[in-house]
Amino acid sequence: MTVPLSEVGTRADAVELQGITIAFPVAHEKTYEAVGETNLSVRDREFVAIVGPTGCGKSTLLNATAGLLKPARGQIKIFGKTHTGINGHAGYLFQQDSLMPWKTSLDNVAIGLEVAGTPRREALERARTWLGKVGLSAFCDRYPHMLSGGQRKRVGLAQVLIRDPKIILMDEPFGPLDAQTRLIMGDLLLDLWTADRKAVMFVTHDLDEAIGLADRVVIMSAGPSSRIIGDYTIPLTRPRNMADIKSEPQFHEVHREIWNALKEEVLKGYRQAEKA
């Protein structure tokens, strides 16, 4: 299932979604088509943000890429190879709290290595280093409930990155955090990603965040059967700073352009929600 990277052609995209349709059973015999005929490709080392109105199936798309969901139609290629089952190349940072509450920060970070067969002592050593990278050296022995929301996200980030995944999936990871913490987490993510670039699919409803972080921003239409309706390259130079970047004129230009396209879909999304 897991393809060694050396065998992977450099030209192959990290993720290639071809004609993906995802449907959920709702009532008997009926299904709700969340995502319809969607195509999306993410190059290796590229940071793609996915923006769209609430309930447009952004998370569904990530879950399919992760292998947690099976699309009804279409295929998913990971580094050029058709993929089914859990995607071993991907690390996934969830929106909800997903740390194991019965393990300390250190054990939570180390577990990904341990289950892959790394000796415990070495796994703990590397977990300690990773907790240092996310600024939590002093919190190794804390259980998740003793940490703040932002600290739990940092542990989650370390937990995902320690396994060195080639693809990182993020589902509104900073959604539950307050505005200041989000900026700080954004900068932390940019630092870590710049140091070791991976393909990233970052779902968010926050357009500022999407533009600040990503190389490319794609927009999804309001559901049902949502698809990708816009694909914008972000011309802002790196390294970036999440707070400063908002004062650059170029940021506003891009923001205006994308928002014009997005606004209509957001309103459509509201109307859908009212009908339902």
């Binding site: 947690l68 859990i86 969830f94 997903s98 740390l99 194991m100 019965w102 289950v115 937990q159």
Partner: peptide, 30 residues
């Protein structure tokens, strides 16, 4: 068991036995 914790554990590469040991068992025992 929280579906998010379970999905996360699977994404971290746990097989059935490891899920039992690291997720189901601690949850049930708690």
């Amino acid at each position: 068991v929280s579906p998010a914790v379970l999905s996360n554990a699977r994404m971290l590469g746990m097989n059935g036995r490891q899920l039992l040991r690291h997720v189901y068992m601690p949850s049930a025992l708690s």
